[in-house]
Amino acid sequence: MNKNIRRTLLSLASLAVASATLAALPGQAVAAGKITIMVGGITKMVYLPAKLAEQLGYFKEEGLDVELQSQPAGVDAENELLAGAVQAVVGFYDHSIDLQTKGKEITAITIFGQVPGEVELVSTKAAPNFKSMADAKGKTLGVTGLGSSTNFLTQYLASRHGISSKEFSVLPVGADNTFIAAIKQGRIDAGMTTEPTASQLLKTGDAQVLVDMRTVEGTVKALGGLYPASSLYVQRSWLNGHKDDAQKLARAFVKTLKFINTHSAEQIADKMPKDYYGNNKALYVQALNNSLPMYSPDGKMPKGGPETVLAVLSGFNPNVKGKHVDLSKTYTDEFVNQVK
């Protein structure tokens, strides 16, 4: 065969393959494409279902190639999603509401936490004069970051006692070790954090529980209703073209939530990587035991939950205040409802 003819045929064949690949892109993922999920702090117990699903092999059972990555703050994870660097985020549901007011369509497809899993801790030194959020006036309160979910929740808790955000100071102290240091050094009188940080401070006696949002009862008492928090959310544009992948992810996570709801804290801890609890597995188990009530049993959006979240954000998030939000577009139970 003439060399020029052979080259022409090879070029045409290459173009045909490329065209077929491009034609497939708008629909389902081409061949088993990798799905990267960014977690807003992968060792936080509020986001435990992400790593546990991987450890239990549920992604592989669904034929998914999932890579978990971690960013310490939810807002960073959110930015990665909007930039198209990742396909999904495990973070707080409230980002879906916040982003809609900025013209971004984000949808939560599985709810992990029916409550925030957050605890407002007061330092033992400040405790004698700080019995409830009604005593927040003139105090310094720690949050993970300015504009974070913990920041809005803190302002909302104070407002329920008639205290405005101008009557106390807010200090961003992060989470984990930086939060612990802020309490021990007296830089904050109280602060909002999650497990296992809360159990660490309670065990050393450096802090006491002021407001407990790790349980349904505690959350309803503090916020007036359920507050769906940790969730798996994606961009609506990705969801429309990858419904099969979304269904598989939902199935993997609902199976994980059912595992959590049918096993003890010890049994769950046994499935986690050793570096998650280090040399103190007993403390990790205790913290996990405190956290079990927050996990959803089925991944569905709790009734009235979106309205409670919107009420909190409308009061203190300048992006949401006074804006119309279509809550029906911020989440969907379409996929979790299909899981048997």
Rank of each mutant, 00 (worst) to 15 (best):
residue 290 N to Q: 14
residue 113 G to Y: 01
residue 205 G to A: 10
residue 292 L to D: 02
residue 316 F to Q: 07
residue 285 V to R: 11
residue 16 A to V: 08
residue 9 L to D: 03
residue 285 V to S: 04
residue 114 Q to V: 13
residue 14 S to M: 15
residue 194 T to K: 13
residue 2 N to T: 09
residue 71 Q to Y: 12
residue 223 L to D: 02
residue 196 P to Y: 09
residue 302 P to C: 04
residue 273 P to L: 01
residue 129 N to A: 15
residue 73 A to R: 15
residue 182 A to M: 04
residue 137 K to D: 02
residue 245 D to P: 04
residue 177 N to M: 06
residue 238 W to N: 10
residue 123 S to L: 14
residue 66 V to Q: 12
residue 7 R to F: 08
residue 142 G to V: 07
residue 199 S to I: 09
residue 17 V to N: 08
residue 321 K to V: 02
residue 3 K to A: 06
residue 235 Q to W: 09
residue 260 I to K: 04
residue 232 L to Y: 08
residue 238 W to C: 12
residue 132 S to M: 03
residue 310 L to G: 00
residue 107 T to C: 14
residue 243 K to H: 12
residue 255 K to T: 09
residue 100 Q to M: 11
residue 1 M to H: 13
residue 338 Q to Y: 00
residue 127 A to I: 01
residue 102 K to D: 15
residue 291 S to P: 00
residue 32 A to I: 12
residue 239 L to W: 02
residue 57 G to Y: 04
residue 103 G to M: 13
residue 113 G to C: 08
residue 103 G to R: 11
residue 226 L to W: 00
residue 61 E to M: 04
residue 310 L to Y: 07
residue 174 G to N: 03
residue 255 K to G: 10
residue 5 I to Q: 13
residue 5 I to E: 15
residue 222 A to D: 14
residue 308 T to V: 01
residue 66 V to A: 05
residue 10 L to C: 03
residue 45 M to P: 02
residue 325 V to L: 10
residue 279 N to E: 14
residue 51 K to V: 15
residue 20 A to S: 09
residue 102 K to N: 14
residue 31 A to G: 14
residue 93 Y to D: 04
residue 327 L to D: 05
residue 45 M to I: 07
residue 92 F to P: 11
residue 229 A to I: 02
residue 252 A to W: 02
residue 212 D to N: 13
residue 89 V to N: 08
residue 50 A to Q: 11
residue 37 I to C: 06
residue 42 I to M: 14
residue 37 I to K: 06
residue 147 G to H: 01
residue 90 V to R: 07
residue 262 T to C: 06
residue 321 K to A: 14
residue 104 K to T: 06
residue 78 E to G: 11
residue 109 I to S: 07
residue 176 D to A: 14
residue 68 L to Y: 03
residue 97 I to F: 12
residue 202 L to W: 12
residue 121 L to F: 06
residue 53 A to I: 07
residue 164 S to D: 14
residue 247 Q to C: 01
residue 89 V to L: 03
residue 207 A to G: 09
residue 191 G to R: 08
residue 167 E to K: 15
residue 253 F to Y: 15
residue 79 N to V: 06
residue 136 A to F: 09
residue 146 L to W: 03
residue 148 S to V: 01
residue 173 V to L: 04
residue 148 S to T: 07
